[in-house]
Design a protein around this nucleic acid. Structure first.
Lengths: 159, 159
DNA sequence: TATTGTTATACTCTATAACTATA
DNA sequence: TATAGTTATAGAGTATAACAATA
């Protein structure tokens, strides 16, 4: 009448993609915090810096749409990157409401450094996979979240 | 000097397993909230109910270990399930500190109902995948989070 | 009338410290 | 001395409402 034999049966949950994707993402993303800490970056600020570096002139709204961040929550994040001299805000030529974001030299340099760190951590966290398996995994995961024709999905237009 | 051409280049981030796993999990897990709401369940409480149903006599500690929940945070969740008459706490025979958790008839019934709902939502969220692809995906994701020999991982012993 | 960036704020999730009763 | 369950609380993440400037 007590605890289960020894190993806990999680078979039912393991049949769901959602459960597995979440647990895997927590492992891989969680492992990122330690190696990114010396660079004073988090997974989110690294993503922001990367997108600005790869898309100079991008706006805050576009960053929100790309990363699933709500506008009010990106303000402090971008302000922090600006204050640290990693990105700059330039006036948008065609829309005076918006600001175009650009990486500074320091920002571009830090991004290159962080890119290597993240790549290494990502590989190490998924060391149980072969190179071919990792490629397949990326493809399958992208099929899921790039499908925006998921009928009757209302809740996660932002997520 | 403004916004990028049109499509935003997210290629660098898409090369990381962590980024893709997180975005996919947000889509699949986020889609769960709506269909589970009528049953007064969330992804977490559904997982708890499932594990108790499949492992009668399991303890709170074991649930924490299986789902990556910290002990202080599981208290209110279990109390809610007990109050709703879905699970019961019985005295643990061999350890008077612990409680063995069991599903009630109502809990088992609700779990069966929810299981079908979650299965349907999970399938619908991953409709872009073939059955074979879904199976491969589950295998690859499990390889990641079931690998506890990830050298020098300190941060996510709980996650 | 709609959208960008923003403030203020609330709500949820996650994390740490410390206590009790047992082991 | 360590562990199961618990309380209290702090912090991070995520959410809505509303505003000024501009479209």
């Amino acid at each position: 009448m007590n605890a289960p034999a020894q190993p806990i049966n999680t078979g039912a949950l393991e049949a769901f993609v959602g459960y597995n994707a979440r647990r895997a993402s927590l492992v891989v993303m969680g492992a990122l915090d330690v190696p990114l800490a010396p660079l004073n970056l988090t997974p989110v600020t690294f993503s922001l810096l990367s997108l600005v570096a790869d898309n100079p002139g991008i706006t805050a709204r576009q960053l929100c749409g790309s990363l699933g961040i709500l506008p009010p929550n990106i303000v402090a994040l971008l302000a922090g990157l600006v204050e640290r001299g990693l990105i700059t805000r330039l006036p948008h030529t065609s829309d005076k409401r918006a600001q175009s974001l650009h990486p500074t030299d320091a920002g571009a340099a830090l991004r290159r450094q962080a890119q290597a760190v993240v790549q290494g951590s990502d590989n190490s966290s998924t060391a149980a996979l072969s190179s071919a398996e990792r490629t397949v995994l990326l493809t399958l995961l992208q099929k899921i979240y790039k499908t925006r024709d998921n009928t009757q999905n209302v809740g996660e237009m932002v997520a």
